[in-house]
């Protein structure tokens, strides 16, 4: 009955409903995200203990429950809580599962490396994946891929084949990252999600190109490092590698990323200054997320909130690591992203 009403409303008004409840609760939760002013105050805190106390006052449950020494565990717990919440408010599991897939691919990389390079995977495993970590570990160990979802199995097999060929640990990352973005792109249903993947792919590829340039790599290397193209085709990026960095903004003039590239270069003291790259590309994504403010019934606000919250956790980590190691406040502020709230 409910389904039918939803269907009519959706068809009549061309917006898929169902996320209305999620949107409502997210609009409240968004007000509890850390604001720019709060982040600035945190950056000014005298020591990690004070920063942690300020976080607790700002309403972060994790900060109130544990000591600052346990900040890393608290962040992991907060991430888990975020996905539990997301699952509980979304009418269908697909979209949240789609976001969680990123952690599955990460865990796949971890277990591949753990198995083939004989490393200890414990510290590197995310607990929020869609597929239980043990299942992935088991599949990698026994090479029985059929136990895993198809996309993970495919990525795992391809990565192992590539590793057997090159014997380079990097093969795992390159292949699995590529498969991950390909999978995310294939399974993005809503236009918003498709746009988001395109943005992710473009930013990842630009970042790879800039870093390859900075490390003086050749085209063959970059070709292996690239993930599926977003709006900028691979050929274009590979060509860019031949040009000096000064000409990149001109060459990317008609893409949305010209200013990003220009900003990275403008702060150059060395061949490529990558220090600001992560922050700038995160801000780019945040700007895209902010555009979801007007959606009401679709999954956009939920997705935007999850990603914004992930970035908030990152900001908290930057502050805590900075405070523990005594980085000056100005430097911390330089690293902090603009706030979504």
């Amino acid at each position: 009955m409910n389904e039918m009403v939803e269907l009519e409303y959706a068809e009549g008004l061309t917006e898929d409903s169902g996320y209305a409840f999620a949107t409502g609760s997210i609009r409240v939760l968004e007000t509890r995200l850390l604001t720019g002013a709060q982040l600035a105050r945190l950056a000014e805190a005298a020591d990690p203990a004070e920063a942690w106390r300020l976080l607790a006052e700002a309403g972060l449950a994790m900060a109130a429950e544990t000591g600052w020494q346990e900040y890393e565990a608290a962040l992991a717990q907060e991430l888990e809580r975020l996905y539990q919440y997301a699952r509980s408010v979304s009418p269908k599991p697909e979209v949240v599962a789609w976001l969680k897939k990123r952690y599955d691919f990460h865990n796949l990389k971890v277990f591949l490396k753990a198995h083939f390079l004989e490393e200890d995977p414990r510290e590197a495993v995310f607990g929020v994946g869609e597929v239980p970590a043990e299942l992935i570990a088991q599949a990698v160990k026994t090479a029985v891929w059929s136990a895993l979802p198809e996309e993970l199995a495919r990525a795992g097999e391809a990565a192992v084949a590539e590793y057997e060929r090159t014997k380079a640990a990097q093969a795992f990352d390159f292949v699995v990252d590529r498969e991950m973005f390909a999978h995310l792109r294939e399974t993005a249903r809503q236009p918003f999600l498709r746009g988001l993947v395109e943005l992710w792919c473009d930013l990842a590829n630009l970042k790879s190109a800039l870093r390859a340039k900075g490390l003086g790599k050749d085209r063959a290397f970059l070709a292996r490092a690239l993930v599926p193209p977003g709006s900028i085709p691979h050929d274009r990026l590979l060509e860019l590698l031949e040009f000096p960095l000064e000409e990149w903004p001109e060459s990317l003039k008609y893409t949305p990323y010209a200013r990003l590239i220009a900003a990275v270069r403008a702060e150059a003291g060395r061949p490529v200054d990558l220090g600001q790259l992560d922050r700038l590309s995160d801000n780019f994504v945040l700007a895209r997320l902010r555009a979801t403010r007007f959606s009401l019934y679709g999954p956009e606000p939920l997705v935007a909130y999850i990603l914004a919250k992930e970035m908030e956790l990152k900001a908290v980590r930057i502050i805590m690591v900075g405070k523990i190691n005594g980085l000056p406040p100005e430097e911390l502020k330089e690293r902090l992203r603009t706030s979504y709230a």
Binding site: E72, L75, A76, H106, K109, V110, K113, A114, F116, L117, E118, E119, P121, E123, A124, V125, F126, A169, D173, G275, D278, K314, R317, I318, V321, G322, N325, L327, R335
Partner: peptide, 22 residues
């Protein structure tokens, strides 16, 4: 330190799993 701040603990550990010198 900055890389450590930018990346999740899990991400950093994953990136640095190089197998030592095998």
């Amino acid at each position: 330190l900055l890389a450590r701040a930018e990346m999740a603990k899990e991400g950093l550990y994953e990136a640095l799993m190089t197998g030592g010198d095998s």
